[in-house]
Nucleic acid binder design. Structure first.
Length: 821
DNA sequence: CTAGGGTTAG
């Protein structure tokens, strides 16, 4: 398929009229189709992607040609007509040998895996397994393949190994396989499971599952045989490493159930080694990542019961697991225990290992996560004094500063600890992550100028930006809707720095542009603004396709958002693009995320039936989609309907009908409560508030505000009953348990006091809704945006504070004889 | 075979 070139002479879409906007969309779709065809061509008929690279040399004939020759030969020899399959098999076997033999001569040859697969399937289907000679030929063909795909040391790609594994499964379906083949396959898998960079989740799942099946076969002996001439070069029995590799594979894809099956297999197998601290470390990591503190504790108890002596790695895994479970103090007490000086260590029965640099860095990460800058700094000072410091320490300390919004401190840490000059052999500068994070943080704070400054600073200090850095800086530009600059930077990134943007890069840009759109005030000709935003989004999307970056579900939902925000909603275009993407197998249009955006779009277009239809079609509806549906009904004024939907769903839970039940969250109730209050139904709002708490859902700041703000204005206009006052007091009491930025709650309290003492229309009440902080975050708009100040604290005058801190820690006049790098 | 850093996300 010929690649369609991007027409760069095209006008900027911002200046476009509606007519040629249709042209843009068609163009986008056209490019899209071209892109898809290229993709499909590569994936055709295969469950796996073998032909991602251009074929350099065509090997042998096509399968059809082979079948044809067989027919020709058979026809020419009537004596063979008595269905002499052995001869056919012989021919096919020779063809396989021919195709596989190229392996040794030229590594640049791309195998025709599809053709080989066809031939093997034909062989397997036509052979007579009762005939010894035929059976031997079949297995000989398989051996020809496996000896290449699993050869050691491997110089083949993951695709080759993947093909070998597929063929092994095919072989198992027609007979037993040699034990040595299993061990060989496991060894090959090992190599690719160790370095999983660049592999998709599906590939990693395939690896773990394949490895498990092989392991299972090796443990049980089912479907295995041991040939007489045993290959002496091959590992003979299983050792702990084999189990740990598979275990780690499952933990890394987040499948703990399978991980525990591996452990069970290991424990059940007679001559397998028992679970060691290594296995425990892997499992602890897995449960920690899931935030399953109970699982972590159970593992620790089990290790103790089995008299396991944990090494430093297992302790570090534990510290990290505690941190991942938000149990930083638990992590710290373990860390302190390890640090304690034990003078009579020899006398102790179980001496604890000494913490190493990784223990310290992990602990530092914990303080960063807990936003405890003071502890982070004092630990960092201790590390510097003990000469325990590396680039991860710098990066982690910077992330702690950023987490506490101490940007000036982040910059001074970077100024002091950036590795200069950097001569490492690694692909990237080790501190690029810290700079990237800082750019991202400035961007999130709406501070494009500083984000750009840091980006320039990196160049000055020889810290080369990578894909992540570009993503962050272009996200920052997108938030300020600087499309021309973004396009320039994209070109620079691709052509000068030779970095290929990822789907995340493009999603960040699209999300940023749309976010800015959110901030546009309604009215004042904003339909024009919305349409310009949508055109820019489509423009970037087109660039994405032209760069051959495959869009995903997030991309699709962002496109829906962009077009859905338009006035009027460009729903037809939206549907066309999404169904095109669906037809080409890129996304599932019934994906919950895409559908949620569609529901919002329908809601904006006042098409409530469309919203309901979309929800009903979702393959796995979730809370957020459900909430969007409720919002749609509420926004269209059908609160009664929204309540009915909620009730029906609630009853499903009572009936324990888990199939279609969607769980509620605090947002579900906030939507219902705020629209009930909008029509002055304080009684029902109060009922819902209590139902929420009865369900074990505690109100957050958004829920509290959704009650207090409208209740206060109701109090000002129509007055409140005693019951209403009780409701407010209850909510206020809940609110006091939460952290609020600035004076928010105090003001509300004051306003409520005034109302309940009968005084109306006080000037302090009116000013409530004009808090600039809330305005910036759209706080005043009661909609389904809830996490309105996720960690955003007004920037303090942090510079003097930091200097004081550094002064008090004597960091400003550190012993200069100690050079870190 | 096991432990510590970054970008997007209804």
């Amino acid at each position: 398929m010929e690649r369609i070139k991007q027409d760069s002479s095209r006008n900027s879409p911002i200046l476009m009229t509606r007519e040629n906007r249709t042209f843009v969309v068609s163009l986008v779709l056209f490019l899209f189709l071209a892109h898809i065809c290229t993709l499909v061509e590569g994936f055709q008929g295969a469950t796996v992607s073998y032909n991602r690279f251009p074929r350099i040399q065509k090997l042998g004939a096509t399968s059809d040609e082979i079948y044809n020759s067989i027919d020709v030969i058979s026809a020419r020899n009537p004596s063979l007509k008595a269905s002499n399959r052995s001869n056919d098999l012989q021919i096919l076997n020779e063809e396989i040998e021919k195709r596989m033999s190229h392996a040794n001569t030229d590594a640049t040859i791309d195998y025709d895996w599809e053709g080989i697969r066809d031939l093997m399937q034909h062989i397997v289907k036509t052979a007579n397994y009762k005939n010894t000679q035929e059976r031997k030929l079949v297995h000989d063909s398989f051996r020809l393949i496996s000896s290449q795909t699993f050869r050691q040391p491997t110089s083949l790609s993951w695709d080759a190994v993947k093909f070998g594994l597929e063929m092994m499964e095919l072989q198992v379906s027609v007979g037993s396989i040699p034990r040595s083949l299993c061990l060989q396959a496991l060894k090959s898998l090992n190599i690719f499971m160790r370095n999983t960079k660049g592999l998709s989740l599906a590939d990693r799942q395939f690896q773990a599952n394949s490895a498990f099946r092989i392991l299972q076969r090796l443990c049980t002996g089912v479907g295995l045989h041991i040939p007489k001439e045993q290959n002496k070069n091959v590992q003979i029995s299983l050792d702990e490493r084999d189990f740990c590799m598979v275990l780690n594979g499952f933990v890394n894809v987040g499948d703990l159930q399978m991980a525990h099956r591996v452990v069970a297999l290991q424990c059940r197998t007679d001559n397998a080694p028992p679970l060691s601290p290594i296995g425990y470390s892997i499992l602890i990591k897995g449960h920690g990542r899931q935030g399953d503190i109970q699982g972590v504790d159970e593992l620790l108890a089990r290790a103790k019961m089995n008299d396991i002596e944990p090494d430093i790695i297992m302790y570090n895994s534990l510290i990290d697991a505690y941190i991942n479970c938000d149990e930083v103090s638990k992590a710290y007490s373990l860390f302190k225990q390890l640090k304690e000086l034990r003078p009579s260590q020899e006398e102790q029965e179980n001496p604890l290992p000494t913490p190493n640099l990784r223990s310290y860095n992990t602990m530092l990460k914990g303080f960063a996560k807990a936003e405890d800058m003071e502890s982070a700094l004092s630990l960092a000072k201790e590390m510097e004094n003990a000469k325990l410091w590396d680039s991860v320490t710098t990066n982690t300390l910077v992330s702690a500063a950023i987490a506490t919004q101490n940007f000036a401190m982040a910059e001074s840490i970077l100024e002091r600890y950036t590795i200069i000059p950097y001569t490492g052999k690694k692909r990237w500068h080790p501190n690029v992550e810290a700079y990237t994070q800082l750019i991202g943080a400035y961007s999130l704070n709406g501070d494009l100028e500083n984000a750009k400054r840091v980006f320039k600073l990196m160049k000055e200090r020889g810290v080369d930006p990578n894909e992540y850095t570009y993503t962050a800086i272009m996200g920052a530009l997108a938030r300020e809707w600087q499309t021309p600059q973004i396009k320039k930077l994209l070109l620079y990134m691709k052509n000068v720095d030779a970095i290929i943007p990822s789907v995340v890069t493009y999603n960040a840009i699209l999300a940023g542009i749309i976010e800015k759109n959110n901030y546009q005030e309604e009215g004042d000709g904003s339909d024009l603004v919305y349409n310009k935003v949508a055109d820019d989004v489509l423009d970037i999307f087109q660039d994405m396709l032209a760069t051959s970056v495959t869009p995903n579900e997030i991309t699709a939902s962002l496109l829906v958002d962009a077009l859905g925000y338009c006035k009027p909603s460009r729903l037809d275009e939206t549907r066309n693009i999404i169904s095109k993407m669906d037809e080409n197998g890129l996304v599932n249009s019934n994906n919950a995320r895409i559908s949620t955006s569609m529901i919002r779009a329908y809601s904006k277009a006042s098409d409530i039936a469309g919203a309901q239809r979309t929800f009903d079609a979702i393959s796995e509806p979730d809370t957020i989609a459900f909430n969007a549906l409720l919002s749609a009904y509420c926004d269209s004024g059908s609160i009664r309907q929204a309540m009915n939907i909620y009730r029906n769903n609630f009853n499903l839970a009572e009936l324990k009908n888990g199939e279609s039940y969607v769980s509620h969250d605090v947002a579900t109730y906030t939507i219902l409560i705020s629209s009930l209050l909008k029509i002055g139904s304080t009684q029902n709002a109060s009922k819902m508030y209590n139902e929420m708490k009865k369900e074990g859902i505690s109100p957050d700041t958004g829920a509290i505000d959704a009650v207090l703000t409208p209740m206060i204005s109701l109090g000002n206009s129509v007055g409140l009953t005693d019951k209403d006052i009780n409701f407010i007091s209850e909510v206020l009491a809940d609110g006091r348990k939460l952290e609020w930025p600035g004076e928010y709650l105090k003001r509300k309290e004051k306003a409520i006091k005034i109302i309940s003492s009968g005084r109306m229309r006080d000037s302090s009440i009116e000013s409530l809704d004009e808090d600039p902080l809330f305005k910036r975050k759209n706080w005043n708009k009661v909609d389904s945006g809830f996490k309105l100040w996720g960690g955003i604290i007004p920037q303090e005058t942090s510079k003097p504070v930091i200097d004081e801190f550094l002064e008090s820690k004597n960091w400003n006049d550190m012993d200069s004889s100690f050079r870190l790098f």
